[in-house]
């Protein structure tokens, strides 16, 4: 579903990603781990289409389309979703209105009729329970004054409302206490299916106890230096990132 080939990207003159190769198939959960500053968020941003990054080399194919040519909104409409590491506060726009607008924009793109208010509310009520999100939170301005945990839960809530095909979760676990982490993981696991792909970006192994990945990749200095199964995450946890820094890159780009 997502194929990244030799992706080089950076900000202005500075190259942050130095040749990323990654393939995610439908039904798979991949985890990308790596120390701070290794380029995890940069990768997520480039995939979601954030402005300010230049892609100097490489290709990204998403469901048969050249992802890098699409606008951010079209990427989302094609089924890509990014749960932000730092969700943005939007004054004066309620979460409900925001999600409803997004959902209907996506439906419109696919030639479907918009959901009416009643249909939307029904869907929302159903899915709110799963993330133990309160109605009052959803009628407040989007993320404004939300606690860290509320913001992250809201990201996952948006994901299960919009039902993307591929979800990238950028440090969704950071700043969550154990209960919130469980709730968030539950939401993600509910979303997990044979049709969907998930890319979990995390600094710590902890989240992967709850969202068990099929593959784990280690990102270091803008490259995937090691790939493996979920055991790799445990090894990292045990030995720390120094263990990667000391080994030279094992997966050279093709």
């Amino acid at each position: 579903m997502l194929t990244i080939r030799n992706l080089h990207a950076g900000i202005e003159e500075r190259e942050i990603l130095n040749g990323i190769n990654l393939e995610i198939k439908a039904g798979e959960v991949h985890a990308i781990m790596g120390p701070n500053g290794s380029g995890k968020s940069t990768l997520a941003s480039v995939l979601a289409g954030r402005e300010g990054y230049t892609v100097s080399r490489g290709k990204v194919d998403f469901l048969g389309k050249n992802l890098l040519e699409l606008s951010p909104e079209d990427r989302a409409r094609e089924g890509l979703f990014l749960a932000f590491q730092y969700p943005v506060e939007i004054p004066g726009v309620s979460t409900t209105n925001f999600i409803k607008t997004a959902l209907n924009e996506i439906r419109k793109y696919h030639g479907e009729d918009p959901l009416d208010a009643v249909g939307f509310l029904k869907l929302m009520k159903e899915r709110m329970k799963l993330l133990q999100i309160d109605q009052s939170l959803l009628s407040r301005s989007l993320n404004e004054g939300f606690s860290g945990g509320e913001k992250k839960r809201n990201e996952i809530f948006q994901m299960i409302m919009l039902q993307p095909k591929l979800a990238i979760l950028d440090e969704t676990d950071s700043g969550l206490d154990i209960d919130a982490l469980r709730i968030v993981a539950q939401g993600v696991n509910q979303f997990r299916s044979k049709e969907n792909g998930i890319l979990v970006v995390t600094h710590y192994q902890r989240l992967l106890d709850y969202i068990v990945p099929d593959f784990v990749h280690v990102l270091y200095n803008g490259r995937i230096v090691k790939s493996g199964t979920k055991e790799l995450a445990l090894e990292l946890e045990e030995k720390g990132y120094d263990f990667i820094k000391n080994t030279t890159s094992e997966t050279e780009p093709a």
Binding site: P72, F98, E105
Partner: peptide, 9 residues
């Protein structure tokens, strides 16, 4: 960007 990343034009 946040809004656009959710599919909003």
């Amino acid at each position: 960007f946040y809004l656009r990343s959710r599919g909003i034009g």
